[in-house]
Design a protein around this nucleic acid. Sequence first.
DNA 1: CTTGCCAGAGAACGATGGTTCTCTTAGGCT
DNA 2: AGCCTAAGAGAACCATCGTTCTCTGGCAAG
Lengths: 206, 206
Amino acid sequence: MTRQGDAGLRESGDLQLRRAVIESADSLYYAHGFHAVGMDALRQHAGVSLKLIYRLFPSKESIVLAVLDYRHQIWAGEVTAAVERAESPRERLLAIYDYLAGWFRAENFRGCVFINAFGELATESPAVAAKAAEHKRDFRDYMDQLAVDAGFSAELGDQLMLLAEGAQVTAAITGDASMALKARRAAEMLLSVEEARPVAGTASAL
Amino acid sequence: MTRQGDAGLRESGDLQLRRAVIESADSLYYAHGFHAVGMDALRQHAGVSLKLIYRLFPSKESIVLAVLDYRHQIWAGEVTAAVERAESPRERLLAIYDYLAGWFRAENFRGCVFINAFGELATESPAVAAKAAEHKRDFRDYMDQLAVDAGFSAELGDQLMLLAEGAQVTAAITGDASMALKARRAAEMLLSVEEARPVAGTASAL
DNA sequence: CTTGCCAGAGAACGATGGTTCTCTTAGGCT
DNA sequence: AGCCTAAGAGAACCATCGTTCTCTGGCAAG
């Protein structure tokens, strides 16, 4: 950990530091909003110097983008894990709502960070707007794939996604965690409709 | 329009001015975000002096709250009008999605101002957070009432509301206006389920 | 031990925010 | 006509932001 020329160790140290800064930024930004958390608050919470932060990131915007990447990975990992835990194709499609129910009840729940980031930063940062759009499209594609894999239409995946998004905003704004359950029951009804009238040309034909 | 003591005329003039400022603020805040629009930009767009603005409103926050009130009235009026235009109880429940479809296609569409305001200002302004919550609860109550009036359960109203909210955020972030139609088709399926199995203790029993 | 480099702490800087103040001017009343 | 009020324009004020710079101290190499 000594020589300047030792690129390997320096790089790995930087990666650890980056992660520490990102995790600090993540919790602060999520709790208080992006504008409300200045670089000084981040420096203090992360316990590093401003100089170091600006060696790791060229600007605050790049930290925000890194946080969004970080959150996307966490979200994708946890959602995938919840789905994998489900025991039937039908339960795989409904697992998202149980995951949301647990999340909504967390005491630090403040809605979807991508929706919040879009509302707060989209006009001043096209990069943030693009990241939010990418995240939502990714989630939509995932639900579509899940639906198709279970023998339903891709459109049903879209509909399940809309219910999940609606539950997230409504739970965040009104503070009503029961929205996850309401969304789940709506999803169950949608599944029952397509089960009664199966879609042509899907995996169910195999 | 002359004397200072003429409280009546002074008041009515102030009301007109208030409305002009609120309308300017509304279009600017919606287009660019709340933080991004300073008092000077508002002064310029509204064509009035800063001094006048601060005589009409004690602070920027109060302007934001006034804008939210203004938007809520517009939303409620337009949604109600769209619902009244529908010709069957079933169509009354679905009218919201056609209204959303038209809105999403507007070139200045940037999502629900209450969701955006919540994401941007909730942490620094409890009053804004409360207004957003009030708006969403009002919409939910309205959909619940519509559902009950049409002989469905109030929970179906909640579900229709979640679909509408999901469509708003998803359309705003991804720019995909077809979300309104997807939400409508999901809503139609939910209606068909409850139609097949009517709910006890509703208006249909009368 | 001396020298030189690097990181940390925090001041400094320029921009911008919301809010207030000053100065000027126009107009109605006695 | 002359004053008094009020309004407009915009500078001033103070805080805070993101970003950069300076100063200082410690540690490794020679």
